[in-house]
Design a protein around this nucleic acid. Structure first.
Length: 297
DNA sequence: ACAACCTCCTGGGGGC
DNA sequence: TGCCCCCAGGAGGTTG
């Protein structure tokens, strides 16, 4: 099935969903770290077993209850919670996030996992994994075997942490005929970009999403890389993009949404100075791509 | 190598 | 107003 109905138009502003990409996962990671690193996991509940694989929920609960949350890390879009000898990997996919909630509040129906940590004053500090669509994935592995996990094995170099630069990006592009946008979404090469930031970065670098990878010059690759890094860093500073219902753990919205220059702006004017083209929406590999045909080539 | 298509899943938009 | 269908999308799988 083609993915685009003729008459259907997304109401992005009101849509409930957004995909956590690198900046959103990083925002979640920092908040989890601030809130719970150093605390003992007193009780763990898994309310949706389908998101957990390959282990059984009980295996994870037995391994982690009583362990301290020693550290957090992130690779691409995968959040890693380190519990001593164990690592709990979380991929939020489309609609997942982690929220801090009072231990007295009733759990919302979208809560899939509940972490109750023992705070130093003896009270409970609760974090919940909320995921409306349950497409997220949770995996337990040994701390020294994270890279062999299912969630990590197809994840390439992190866009911000692994020293990728314009030259490295260009080296990955050489000889490929595939359009640049699907390439940027392919986590095996550069990990962390999703549909929103890939579109934004291409617009910023004035490169068409349709451009074959191999046609991107070294200079353009450098420019594209600069755009990617700038946008990701900016989005992290603003605690991610809310299109939508992305809320940080305090319930605040991410602040990047109003920075979006192409995503969700089909039919509107390009915001680049002196361009004023019309943003269009096309399908690539079954996903929507927004770009300005006038200033992106 | 890469795309097309299916699966997972749900809330909400649109058609009637 | 209400019902029902259809759709989005990240990633992994299968097929072409």
């Amino acid at each position: 099935m083609g993915s685009f109905g003729r008459a259907w138009k997304p109401k992005i502003e009101r849509s409930r969903l957004r995909m956590p990409e690198l900046p959103e996962v990083e925002t979640i990671r920092r908040q989890v770290a601030r809130c719970a690193v150093g605390l003992r996991l007193k009780r763990l509940r898994i309310l949706h077993r389908g998101m957990v694989r390959p282990q059984k929920p009980l295996t994870i609960i037995r391994a982690l209850e009583g362990q301290d949350l020693t550290a957090t890390s992130r690779h691409g879009k995968v959040l890693v919670l380190h519990f001593g000898p164990w690592a709990l990997l979380i991929h939020f996919r489309m609609s997942g996030t982690i929220l801090a909630e009072s231990a007295e509040t009733e759990l919302s129906p979208h809560v899939r996992m509940v972490f109750d940590f023992a705070a130093r004053d003896g009270s409970l500090r609760r974090l919940v994994l909320s995921d409306v669509r349950t497409l997220g994935r949770i995996e337990l592995c040994r701390a020294d075997a994270v890279s062999e996990s299912r969630l990590m094995k197809n994840v390439g170099r992190d866009a911000l942490l692994d020293g990728v630069d314009g030259a490295a990006l260009h080296a990955m592009l050489v000889g490929r005929e595939r359009p640049i946008k699907p390439f940027l979404l392919d986590q095996r090469y550069v990990a962390g970009l999703g549909n929103i930031y890939a579109a934004e970065a291409l617009h910023r670098a004035r490169i068409s999403p349709l451009r074959p990878c191999g046609d991107v010059s070294p200079r353009q690759a450098k420019s594209l890389w600069r755009a990617i890094v700038a946008i990701l860093r900016r989005a992290i500073e603003r605690e991610g993009t809310t299109i939508s219902a992305f809320r940080t753990m305090n319930g605040r919205s991410g602040g990047f949404a109003r920075m979006l220059r192409v995503y969700g702006r089909e039919g509107k004017r390009c915001l680049r100075r002196k361009c004023r083209g019309r943003i269009v929406r096309i399908a690539q590999c079954g996903r929507s791509t927004f770009y300005c045909p006038r200033c992106q080539s």
